[in-house]
Nucleic acid binder design. Structure first.
Lengths: 130, 130
DNA sequence: ATAACAAACGTTATATTATAACACTATGAT
DNA sequence: ATCATAGTGTTATAATATAACGTTTGTTAT
């Protein structure tokens, strides 16, 4: 059995920072933030990020090369991710919508692929910025 | 009025290569391919790529940092892009589906954003690979 | 035709993002 | 206890992307 959900020291440090952040964080900005805690190298960050993504604790915003904490308890394995991204203030909002997710997964099946996951990124101006 | 759709020399060179390619191309692999034509620096490639994207001639596959030619004549301004990506053979297929596009644009509006565009990437195994 | 402007160009340098490789350590299972 | 697995720390380097600068070319208006 896979070790339930225990995080290693570095994974916990990285996750904490991402969870506390208001918006998406870049790998190197995480790195600079943890150097006081004895983490010195990009590898240490990227390794933690990879595992956290695998566990569904965080997501990567591909268009920004940045990482956000997962807010929806039910996206265990991150098969279906969707985000609203404000082009002005950089805010990122995770969209958790069962209907959308169902619609998209079945849509993809029709197209002949063996579906594994999707990632959807919306761009525009958020309520505040528009 | 905006100059219709004339491509500059470098833009044409870059577009030709992307259109001839079977799959997505990375910026530096484009660069290596055009050095015989006197293009020597990444800037030259990235500038052409930026313009081609603006014109809707190509799209960036964000999860791969790679570029594909646009095959759907009707996505003039690339507001709504969707791709199927095979995780095994790296094949990328542009999905052009008016219903999907409509569904997603209106979905986003409901969420309170001033919608500009979206990008959707499906991952899985293509017909050949599954 | 020519002046004025915008777009594209070429170039050097550098920033940013990400991975390779290797030796070592901790943990859990049998 | 030993074996396998996951995690650590480190150095080095690869891959992706942009800044800044001066020049050239193409377009438009006069």
């Amino acid at each position: 059995m896979a070790r339930a959900q225990t995080l290693s020291r570095n994974q916990q440090i990285v996750l904490d920072i991402i969870e506390k952040a208001k918006g998406p964080l870049k790998a190197y900005s995480i790195l600079f933030n943890v150097q006081k805690k004895g983490i010195n190298a990009p590898q240490q960050i990227y390794r933690a990020l990879d595992k956290l993504i695998e566990m569904g604790k965080i997501h990567k915003i591909e268009s920004k090369n940045a990482f956000v904490a997962c807010r929806s308890s039910d996206c265990e394995i991150s098969k279906a991710t969707a985000f609203s991204i404000c082009e002005s203030c950089e805010m990122v909002d995770e969209i958790s919508d069962a209907k959308l997710s169902k619609y998209l997964s079945s849509f993809n099946h029709k197209k002949g692929m063996k579906f594994k996951r999707f990632n959807l990124e919306f761009f525009g101006l958020c309520k505040k910025c528009k």
